[in-house]
């Protein structure tokens, strides 16, 4: 199968006067055309930065590419010119951001905001763009008549649908969804995910779903990557991760989910705190919180070990499975 996206050894830092933040530290990822990848991790793990890195939308001037390559359809995105990137954004690669309440321009009608992306990448007249835009709105479940309404007249869930409409209007090959349902109610969450699933199938879009919610990943994704402190600590198919997780962090994540069936007196969080991203240890970054930590872990940075199929684990104690 052909790979639409291949990230190799990506390193991104934020440089300010006070400190350097090591946001992404050697990330390797692949995505096949038409498939979906779940990128899981806590806040500050580097997921959004990776996504912004793919779009070449890092905040300027603090965000810097330090190393690595991002191949989109074979071409390295980091090396592309500004004009080429503009043609890619919104057109070949689209992104849905986290907070729908602030993602839309308050003084433009929702319809115009969808038309804008259409007119940017397709040679159509204004009226044609309006028609297409209305069609997109209908597709995401918003009546076409609401074209001339403003964002503040919509609820959070509907705003997110508009954002989705904007992202998919030009039928992109790759859609990056950065926690698209985190800011929404649970019931709306289900609707939005269903919508995304439907559109994904219809347009055969490849998807990167960034989330901290393992339930969402289970619903939407084929492959999963677990991210911690800017590194991919575990990667594999849905089955690999959900049935055969090996990295202590992944295991900790699963164990901290309350189980409806079993009765417990205490929840089981992962002890300790995430290290300061401007002062990361060169050895295993999870060592201070790991239940299975040994002296080895504080001496050397673990290698990424392939334990079977495409399942990889970044830990000294990863075991190869048949």
């Amino acid at each position: 199968m052909d790979k639409i996206l291949k990230i190799s050894n990506l390193k991104i830092q934020y440089c300010t006067d006070d400190a350097v933040v090591y946001a992404v530290n050697g990330v390797n990822l692949e995505l096949e055309r038409g498939k979906s990848l779940g990128l899981v991790g806590e806040t500050g793990a580097g997921k959004t930065t990776t996504a912004l890195g793919i779009m070449n939308l890092l905040p300027d001037p603090q965000g810097k590419y330090i190393d690595g390559k991002i191949y989109f359809n074979g071409e390295d995105i980091i090396k592309q010119s500004i004009q080429t990137m503009r043609k890619i954004r919104g057109n070949k690669i689209s992104m849905i951001f986290q907070d729908p309440m602030t993602s839309l321009n308050p003084i433009m009608t929702v319809g115009d905001q969808v038309s804008e992306v259409i007119r940017l990448h397709q040679k159509v007249s204004r009226s044609e763009a309006t028609i297409k835009s209305q069609q997109m709105l209908e597709l995401v479940g918003i009546p076409g008549e609401r074209y001339s309404e403003y964002p503040h007249q919509f609820s959070g869930g509907m705003k997110q649908r508009v954002v989705i409409a904007i992202a998919l209007a030009c039928n992109p090959e790759l859609l990056i969804a950065d926690e698209p349902t985190t800011a929404l109610d649970v019931t709306i969450q289900a609707q939005v995910l269903e919508l995304m699933e439907k559109l994904k199938k219809e347009f055969n879009t490849s998807l990167i779903m960034i989330t901290h919610d393992l339930g969402v990943v289970a619903e939407m994704c084929d492959k999963v990557a677990i991210m911690y402190c800017g590194e991919i600590v575990e990667y594999g198919t849905l089955r690999d991760i959900y049935k055969g997780a090996q990295h202590p962090y992944t295991i900790g994540l699963f164990e901290s989910i309350p189980d409806l069936d079993t009765k417990v007196s205490r929840l089981k969080p992962i002890r300790g705190l995430v290290p300061d991203p401007s002062e990361l240890p060169p050895t295993c970054k999870f060592a201070n919180r790991c239940s299975k930590v040994t002296e080895e872990c504080t001496k050397a940075d673990p290698l990424v070990i392939n334990v079977g199929g495409i399942h990889t684990v970044k830990c000294h104690y990863a075991k190869v499975v048949d």
Binding site: R89, T102, L104, N105
Partner: peptide
């Protein structure tokens, strides 16, 4: 600094 400016850039706008 607002999010909708980032959205506009993500559309590929000049």
């Amino acid at each position: 600094r607002q999010d909708y400016i980032r959205t506009a850039r993500a559309k590929g706008q000049k």
